[in-house]
Amino acid sequence: MKKLMIALASATVLLASSAMAQEKLKIGAAPYGLNAEFMQIWSAALEEHPAVKNGEIELTVFDGRYDALVQQEQFNTMITQKFNAIIFVPIDIEAGATAVQAAHDAGIPVVGSNTRVNSDLLAAYVGSDDTVSGYMEAKTVLDKIGCKGNVVIIEGPIGQSAQISRLEGNQKALAECPDVKVLEQQTANWSRAEAQTLMENWLTSHPGEINGVIGQNDEMALGAIEAIKAAGLNVGDFAIAGIDGVTDALNAVKEGTMTSILQDARAQAQGALDLAIFHAKQGDYKPQSDIWAQYPDMPFNDGKDKEYNVPWTPVTAENVDKLLDMRK
């Protein structure tokens, strides 16, 4: 009897789930590329969204392979296969607009996440304002050196939207400390090895003069730390800051060698997915991710907003262990 009950119950579940499968919403995610840690955390967070886990929606993640054309072709695929909504992280602010236009023409809502696209056809955008993080990181460096002395800036690839905005933020903070001199300012293309070489050479050409290092991402700040160590100098004599909160940087913050600002990939991903489902269901949906409770400053607001700004979290000695635990 008991066995029969179980058999019946499982049959009902099977039937129900197959019936649901036909109704299942198909959501596509198009991140610019999956080679680096940040986008991996981002796409892993999508898979952990309650709506994906309970089988309510069917999620497909496309690897854009850092190529605007590849992303455009993936949009065409999603349009042909009649996806219900698309989450878009464009590699290029301009080239992405064509893809958004095509999806819009096919009646598919597109929700932006993490990086911007120059289009007013997005249903919504969930990201973090890079000028804010640029300001915050420069401020921690300037505070530590007491608003006087010399700093260097290690920039992202010139012309990328994050580089432009973070530099804008850096400069805003620097303007508040007119006595601070920027000795050098160069790109290391987000790369740790390139930043290490750059810093080694700067330590040579400005011996004993550099007080602070503003790295526009964590990787480059970490490269600068290695150069300082290799030169036999004391890392504690420098104020060093990065952005993103990658795992190596969290460990460095724990050691006290740098500061970092966490860009919450999880909130950007899960927030965008909630909005994608909301727009696919034309408003008949309540958000399921816990990120809305986590950030009271960013209310879901019945999906009405066009822009959702995920706040930055400074990584501190107090919260670093908790953040590291979340990575495991």
């Binding site: 080679n35 680096a36 790369s191 740790r192 090895a193 970490l222 490269g223 290695e226 290799a230 190596d248």
Partner: peptide, 13 residues
């Protein structure tokens, strides 16, 4: 040599 210098082996190396 590269990973020993940078302190961490990176997939984009």
């Amino acid at each position: 040599i590269l990973s020993a210098r940078t302190g961490s082996a990176l997939p984009q190396a």
